[in-house]
């Protein structure tokens, strides 16, 4: 069996790539995609831990993954609607143009 560290390292790399994207990318659509990457990193963690556990707790990981997927879908649906609204009102969705409120 593949050692669990391989999965955890993969998930951690995915999570860090997502976090970098959230902090560095000016396009808010890409930022939303990067938060999805971070959520999926957590999903990989859950599935990996679940596969290596025995007994009742092994099921919790799989339940949690289903919950995360549905929450992520709802969040992206609302998020893209909000970006569309921002584009209609402000004519831009770039983070650099959305700076009327500071401090």
């Amino acid at each position: 069996m593949i050692p669990i560290e391989y999965f955890l390292t993969f998930a951690a790399i995915l999570f860090v790539i997502g976090a970098y994207g959230v902090m560095a990318k000016p396009n808010t659509l890409i930022v939303l995609m990067c938060t999805e990457l971070m959520l999926n990193a957590a999903n990989i963690n859950f599935v990996a831990f679940s596969a290596y556990m025995t007994g009742a707790p092994a099921v919790y990981g799989q339940v949690m993954v289903i919950m995360t997927i549905s929450v992520a879908a709802a969040e992206v649906a609302v998020g893209i609607a909000i970006l569309l609204n921002a584009y209609k009102v402000r004519k831009s969705t770039n983070a650099e143009d959305l700076t009327s409120m500071r401090w």
């Binding site: 930022v31 957590a42 921002a86 959305l98």
Partner: peptide, 29 residues
């Protein structure tokens, strides 16, 4: 201003969701 606030809220909220769920996965593991 509400449009801008919404974009900021949804992005920061998404980031916090991702951090939380990653933390829960590590605690679970």
């Amino acid at each position: 201003r509400a449009a801008e606030a919404g974009v900021k809220y949804v992005i920061i909220g998404g980031l916090s969701t991702a951090l939380t769920i990653y933390g829960i996965s590590m605690v679970y593991g």
